[in-house]
């Protein structure tokens, strides 16, 4: 108990709490809507409680609701989980050293590495006198707390609040659409987003709503790998360098490719 009152703990907690406040507002309200949505679809509050605690990855939890309402297919659920959460791989890669050096705390830090927690723990600049591993653990735990409390509150109050919820499932579409729009504004390279939308839609028309996800994932992954030389900024820079190096001595090559 003494360690919770130590000045070292208080300092780290104060810093972590301040950093996590914006996340608190977002997680409590999105978590609340998530719990409420599950309640309105007929799930007991245990479901959002367990799912928000154990999965703890916002978009995948919304997708899991659909999986629970669809025919039973754990392999499909597993593969969809891998694909939707693939971005964590790259959070992990950038946190290898920072989390790797945190001793026993690292297991919880890695378990709780959602987008928002990653963005704080990877971006924050701390004064020297704050215990960084402790700070990062507290940020992770606070965000985890906000999310689970939001979801449970939404599910429990869903039973009390009385309004016609028909159509509320569109919240998931709205969430992903606005993430897409945010991402769109964050970059000038729109081809990955367009390819993701286009290939998935083509697969939906070809394979139908029950079976399109796996072919769509395959098509997206395959196309991305094929287009690496075109879409990868590092490779593009390398190619441009080679082109300028070759540009001067040679005359333009004549294209002869039959027909």
């Amino acid at each position: 108990m003494r360690s919770f009152c130590s000045p070292r703990f208080k300092k780290a907690f104060a810093a972590a709490f301040t950093c996590s406040l914006p996340i608190c507002a977002a997680f409590c309200s999105i978590g609340f809507s998530y719990g409420f949505l599950m309640h309105s679809l007929g799930f007991s509050w245990i479901y959002p409680a367990a799912m928000s605690f154990l999965i703890y990855a916002g978009s995948m939890e919304f997708v899991t609701i659909n999986l629970l309402l669809a025919p039973f297919s754990p392999l499909h659920a597993f593969l969809l989980g891998l694909m939707v959460n693939a971005r964590h791989l790259f959070y992990g890669i950038s946190m290898l050293e920072r989390y790797g050096s945190c001793g026993w705390k690292k297991y919880y830090l890695i378990f709780g590495m959602c987008d928002e927690t990653f963005s704080i723990n990877s971006g924050v600049k701390l004064p020297e006198d704050i215990d960084r591993p402790l700070f990062m653990t507290l940020v992770t735990a606070l965000n985890h707390c906000y999310w689970v409390s939001g979801a449970v509150a939404g599910a429990l109050l869903g039973a009390v609040i009385n309004f016609k919820a028909e159509g509320i499932e569109f919240m998931m579409t709205a969430l992903f659409t606005s993430i897409l729009l945010m991402q769109w504004d964050s970059t000038k390279e729109h081809r990955p987003a367009i390819l993701g939308l286009g290939l998935s839609f083509i697969c939906l028309l070809l394979f139908g709503p029950e079976n399109f996800v796996l072919p769509a994932m395959g098509a997206v992954l395959g196309t991305m790998l094929l287009l690496q030389s075109k879409l990868d900024p590092v490779k593009q820079a390398q190619r441009a360098a080679v082109q300028t190096a070759n540009a001067h001595p040679q005359p333009a090559p004549v294209l002869k490719e039959g027909r």
């Binding site: 694909m83 659409t177 897409l180 987003a193």
Partner: peptide, 9 residues
């Protein structure tokens, strides 16, 4: 970027 497109679909 691509996966969010897939999720919208």
């Amino acid at each position: 970027f691509a996966v969010i497109g897939l999720l919208v679909v």
